[in-house]
Design a protein around this nucleic acid. Structure first.
Length: 271
DNA sequence: CCGGACGCCTGTCGGC
DNA sequence: TGCCGACAGGCGTCCG
């Protein structure tokens, strides 16, 4: 479910409620997520203050003096701030209960998400250390994409969705960025020019930045920390719009499969 | 190293 | 109405 804008929206929603609060207890109802939740999490985090909440790629990092809680929302995860006595519903796997009577509650029906605990520098964690640059930083540029793509025959859509290349670009925003940059999603990554990669880097920044401003995209079940949806869906130019006219040229938007994922594009505008 | 396929899970939706 | 396959916002792993 969540790509970078949805994770960033979640971060901005939860941070004011948890930073500076102390953890009273951690309740684990289901430890079988993408990786099992560590049995040491509860005792390690109890009594710890949350000193910071941040994001790296699609991972949320909750910093304490004793270590860092690393949360990934997978395809169907969401976090909410609720009164600690709110009865849990199906797939509410984890509560981090704070000293003000509220808790951070993780719901994840498909259990592709993860909750990790590390006492080391989280950036050296195996899940984080090999990630590419943040898309909204200066490290993502046309020159960077050009350098990383030389010699690669992979389709550009799959190239920009590779978190070792650049993080945070998921299936929705990959199609949207390629549409904005007018690049065909099946174009081989290694055959794209510097100028077009500059346009693509700009398009990635533009679409992610704008989506954050709208609170992310809700296709089915994404909710922010207040339980409300994101409103970027109305701004999508191609994703989930197969058969609808391209707003630039009127051609019907096409849907194809690339690497088991749906891709949407305009066959007239994108080459 | 690279690229492609598969698997992990549950819920929903469309077609028959 | 009910069943059944397809598909869904991610990503690690395996294999050639």
């Amino acid at each position: 479910m969540p790509e970078l804008p949805e994770v960033e929206t979640t971060l901005r929603g939860i941070a004011p409620h948890i930073v500076g609060r102390t953890v009273r207890k951690v309740v684990v109802r289901e430890r079988r997520l993408r990786w099992p939740i560590s049995r040491t999490l509860q005792s390690a985090v109890r009594g710890q203050p949350i000193s910071a909440a941040s994001r790296r790629a699609k991972y949320l990092l909750l910093t304490t003096p004793a270590g860092t809680i690393v949360i990934h929302l997978g395809m169907s995860g969401s976090l909410r701030i609720v009164p600690a006595d709110t009865p849990p519903q199906a797939h509410d796997h984890l509560d981090i209960v704070f000293d003000n009577g509220r808790c951070l509650r993780l719901r994840d029906p498909r259990r592709f998400g993860a909750v990790l605990w590390t006492v080391r520098d989280p950036m050296t964690h195996a899940r984080l250390r090999d990630l590419g640059p943040e898309p909204l930083s200066d490290a993502l540029s046309g020159d960077y994409l050009l350098a990383r793509s030389r010699g690669r025959r992979l389709a550009v859509k799959q190239f920009i969705m590779d978190s070792h290349v650049v993080v945070g670009v998921g299936n929705i925003y990959a199609s949207e960025a390629l549409y904005l940059a007018r690049i065909h999603p099946k174009c081989a990554a290694g055959r794209i020019t510097r100028q077009r990669y500059t346009q693509l880097a700009d398009a990635i920044k533009a679409v992610l930045g704008k989506a954050i401003g709208f609170g992310g995209t809700t296709l089915r079940d994404f909710t922010n920390s207040d339980g409300r949806p994101g409103y970027f869906r109305n701004q999508l130019c191609v994703y989930d719009r197969a058969g609808e006219p391209c707003e630039q040229c009127g051609t019907q938007i096409r849907k194809i499969q690339q690497g088991q994922r749906a891709t949407y594009y305009c066959s007239k505008c994108q080459h």
